[in-house]
Design a binder for these strands. Structure first.
Length: 278
DNA sequence: AGACAAACCTGTCTGC
DNA sequence: TGCAGACAGGTTTGTC
């Protein structure tokens, strides 16, 4: 479900929890993808403290607590939702974490598929924390430009689809937005990274910025599961140019091509064979 | 190095 | 109406 624009939308809509004090921490006893939520550790790290703010790195959210040396690290996986509720609201199925907050509110994490991740990192050493330690520069707030991409693509013979999907170079792009970025930059998903010219690296960098900015303006892409922390759906699905448009006409004005779907890295990949010629 | 498949899960949709 | 199978926005691990 969530790629960078969706995670950033969640981050922004979590603003109401900033300044709230954590009064209790409850966690289910089911494993997320790789482990149980470390309830005791999380409770020790946060109970009694106020939420200072929420940061984002790629698709991860980092929750800071005032005067505490620990940070809560959250990844939404495919179906994870982080939402703010009144504590009187009924819990939905598959709720795995509930932090009771001052003001009779709760921060809740639900995740039917349990592909998400919740852990505690040491503040100031987040980049040494295992899931974060492999992340590259953030696609939205980092300096992803033609020069940076050119430098990295020189050393890779992978297909551009795989190159951009790999979080260790640019962090935040997922399957939908990689398709959208490559369409916008007119780059074939199968093109080998090292074959990309300096100029075309600039086009890809520009496309990353434009695609993410546009998606963010529309509150993210809700195909089925995604909602912001206040429950609102994003409107970006109505503006996707290639994703899930197999058999439809290419939306580039000067192009008469037809969108194709293939499988790359085991993921559905959409592109226009006419204007993404190589 | 890099491509692929499988694994982790549940829910939803399609076709028979 | 029911049921099997495919598929889903992510990440990691193992194999070739």
């Amino acid at each position: 479900m969530p790629e960078l624009p969706e995670v950033e939308t969640v981050r922004r809509t979590l603003a109401p929890v900033i300044g709230r004090r954590i009064e209790s921490v409850w966690a289910s006893r089911q494993k997320l993808r790789e482990r149980l939520i470390p309830r005791a550790r999380l409770a020790r790290a946060s109970t009694g403290a106020r939420i200072e703010g929420i940061r984002r790195w790629g698709k991860y959210l980092l929750v800071d607590f005032i005067d505490r040396p620990a940070v809560m690290v959250v990844h939404l996986g495919m179906t994870g939702r982080l939402r703010v509720h009144a504590n009187s609201d009924a819990r939905v199925d598959h709720t795995h974490l509930v932090m009771g907050l001052s003001g009779r509110s709760e921060l809740r994490y639900s995740d039917p598929r349990r592909f998400g991740h919740i852990s505690v990192a040491e503040r100031g050493r987040e980049q040494e924390h295992p899931p974060l330690s492999v992340l590259g520069i953030d696609a939205l707030t980092g300096t992803v430009d033609g020069a940076m991409l050119h430098e990295h693509t020189r050393r890779s013979r992978r297909m551009m689809k795989a190159f951009l999907l790999d979080q260790s170079v640019v962090a935040g792009l997922g399957n939908i937005y990689v398709c959208e970025v490559l369409w916008r930059a007119r780059v074939r998903p199968t093109l080998r990274a090292h074959r990309l010219s300096r100029r075309r690296c600039g086009s890809v960098a520009d496309a990353i910025g434009a695609v993410l900015d546009n998606a963010l303006d529309r509150g993210g892409t809700s195909l089925r599961d995604f909602v912001a922390a206040d429950g609102a759906k994003g409107e970006n699905s109505h503006y996707l140019r290639v994703y899930d448009r197999e058999g439809s006409g290419c939306l580039r004005r000067t192009c008469a091509g037809e969108i194709r779907r293939t499988l790359l890295q085991g993921r559905a990949t959409f592109y226009c064979p006419t204007c993404q010629s190589h």
